[in-house]
């Protein structure tokens, strides 16, 4: 994964609650065995509608997705994160995320910024009024800023996820350094645990 320090840019206001992973990337798209090309599937059930917010010209080029509460609930499909990233978003803001989605985001360098419902609402209204309004998400400081609103709020990001974001680190490589601990654990596992063959 690529290091992420600061995400700066404009946002698309997707003002709906409970945007689940089936909406983000419908199951037809999960048949692919590749890891790329999912941008076309992002919200594909809604994209035919010319009024859909992502089809509105004033939001073209935005790199931050403002979602409603309970964004990314539902299935474990990491394709949802890939689709959002491959479309061009580097961060998603919501007042509450589905936990697997949030975790998957952390594995791919997509910044999931959880803010209070009030802030989420304020940002949504502001971006609807002024699509050119800039947001700055700082991974190092764990802050989201909207200079035009004179707003700066902190968000939660665990030390370990932050470390991996800033350094672009791969979890597997880090864990493999603990190979001896894993072997020691395996030596102590009870003999009655099942095997699959």
């Amino acid at each position: 994964m690529e290091p992420v320090h600061i995400v700066q840019g404009t946002a698309v206001p997707l003002d709906r609650s409970d945007v689940d992973t089936d909406q983000i990337i419908p199951s037809d798209w999960l048949k692919r065995v590749e890891r790329t090309g999912f941008e076309k599937g992002l919200f594909s059930e809604w994209r035919d509608d010319p009024d859909f917010v992502m089809n509105q010209e004033q939001y073209a080029g935005a790199n931050i997705l403002l979602g409603g509460p309970n964004f990314g609930t539902g299935s474990s499909r990491e394709h949802a994160v890939w689709a959002i990233q491959q479309y061009g978003f580097a961060a998603v803001v919501s007042s509450r995320f589905g936990p697997i989605f949030r975790n998957n985001s952390s594995k791919n360098g997509l910044v999931a910024v959880e803010v209070s419902p009030e802030v989420s609402d304020q940002l949504m209204r502001a971006v609807e009024t002024d699509p050119t309004m800039e947001l700055i998400i700082d991974v190092e400081r764990r802050t989201l800023e909207a200079p035009a609103l004179d707003l700066e709020v902190g968000f939660e990001l665990s030390d370990s996820v932050q470390h991996r974001f800033l350094n672009g680190l791969d979890d597997i490589g880090i864990t493999m350094q603990a190979g001896d601990d894993i072997s020691a654990f395996e030596a102590e596992r009870p003999g009655f645990k099942p095997v699959t063959r």
Binding site: E78, I100, N103, N104, K107, D171, I172, T175
Partner: peptide, 12 residues
């Protein structure tokens, strides 16, 4: 778990 984690479990 997500696909990145599937890979993690396979490997480790």
């Amino acid at each position: 778990i997500g696909t990145s984690e599937v890979e993690h479990v396979l490997a480790t």
